[in-house]
Nucleic acid binder design. Structure first.
Lengths: 230, 230
DNA sequence: CACGCTAATGTCAGCCACTGACAGTTGACA
DNA sequence: TGTCAACTGTCAGTGGCTGACATTAGCGTG
């Protein structure tokens, strides 16, 4: 070991740093091209060429073109999981999931910025939602996250995931609503962090009554549906 | 018009019949190969060769390899939509969806058999669920169906889909549970039609209480969770 | 029944995502 | 400074998919 390094901030070797730079560059360029010319109209060769590496190198950093598109999303999801794991045991399952989502959004911004501009990530999300192939991948990833979430919830409640269907059911309904929220947020004009936050709270609060209520009778619970007009 | 034809059973020309046979053959062979060697390990060339047509012809019948895998699923979904459209107006949204699913399964069997053996379709469904690329496509298709469903529900209730979030929320929760049901059915050993029917009823009945209940308190509603062990 | 029209199919060339194999280059570390 | 291992480039090849063009074969007409 030639160079000195702080104990809490391990200065990695040149090799590591170079790798990191290459990866960041590939990611940034990929997302930039994806969001401007469109995912399908961007070839891996173009990305590689812009970063001045071979196409083969791209595939050494990302298993697929698709994986590059989801690199940031990946971070967001692990943040949610981390937050869910530290939710106090007293919270009911649904509340815990709800809070985990809302709290994780408090801090995710900076983490993203360390890799790519947040604004680029927002554009990327919109692109994912509007590109069939990526939407499909996104949904599959959501399902995987759903399974992890169900497992965590089951553990919290001390239930056996394979014997009791309730965790999976609740989580399925929860993520279903989250998906709808994400989609409507994307369709609306306001792409800010606050707007998705507001929408999330609003919609989650509507889930229970939406299932139970007689919609033709007067409203009986929270919020003011019919006025959000995103 | 050279040949005579019954008014209610239009005997199509030779051309049409040939096309139909080619399509059926391609579909049957494709599903058979997919379910035996696996989707990824089956090339379009192999399918085409087995039916003795060119690869180009395959792509004239199916826009993609994927489309062939979902051809039957497509039928099942339109059956659900048709059933939902004729549900009596008095039924509440959730009940209408629930009944549409259950009723559509009463008759779909024969319709499938007209194209491929039902047993082959069941195997295909299991393959879709266990093949990542197809699972992704399946989920995307489900989302599209979800949107159509939400529109129908909104119409039934006389609501504006873009102003009132409740239809989409309820439908999202509903299809979320349906997806879980399908997955667990696939994981279980019983691949019969009855078992998926039973599971569906059971799980849908659990949705509402699953969201509202305090799981640590004694059960308060239907069924006997913790004993299904599929 | 021969004819032309057109739909269905075959053939060919080519793009693009992705992979394995092998060779060259360059940090890391003694 | 030299050796090792990691990183990268090059090349050839597979498989999904498409456009262009030639060929075949139902179909209706004279």
């Amino acid at each position: 070991m030639t160079e000195r390094q702080a104990a809490d901030e391990p200065t990695t070797g040149l090799r590591e740093r170079k790798k990191q730079r290459t990866r960041d560059a590939l990611l940034r360029v990929a997302l930039e091209l994806f969001t401007t010319r469109g995912y399908e109209h961007t070839t891996v060769d173009e990305i590689a060429e812009a970063v001045e590496v071979s196409q083969r190198t791209f595939f050494r950093y990302f298993a697929s073109k698709e994986e590059a598109a989801f690199a940031v999303q990946e971070m967001v999801e692990s943040r949610f999981v981390a937050e869910l794991l530290v939710r106090p045991a007293r919270e009911r399952p649904f509340t815990a999931m709800r809070n985990a989502v809302l709290y994780s959004w408090n801090t995710i911004g900076e983490a993203i910025e360390a890799v790519v501009p947040v604004e680029l990530h927002m554009r990327t999300y919109l692109m994912i939602e509007s590109t069939p192939a990526l939407l499909a991948a996104h949904l599959r990833r959501s399902t995987e996250l759903e399974e992890r979430t169900a497992r965590i919830i089951a553990d919290r409640e001390g239930l056996d995931l394979d014997a009791d269907p309730r965790p999976r059911i609740a989580v399925a309904a929860f993520t279903g609503v989250m998906r709808v929220t994400g989609r409507l947020w994307g369709q609306g004009g306001d792409t800010s962090m606050e707007s998705i936050r507001t929408l999330t709270e609003l919609y989650l609060d509507h889930l229970e009554p939406a299932l139970a209520a007689d919609w033709r009778a007067p409203e009986r619970t929270p919020g003011v549906p019919g006025t959000h007009g995103v």
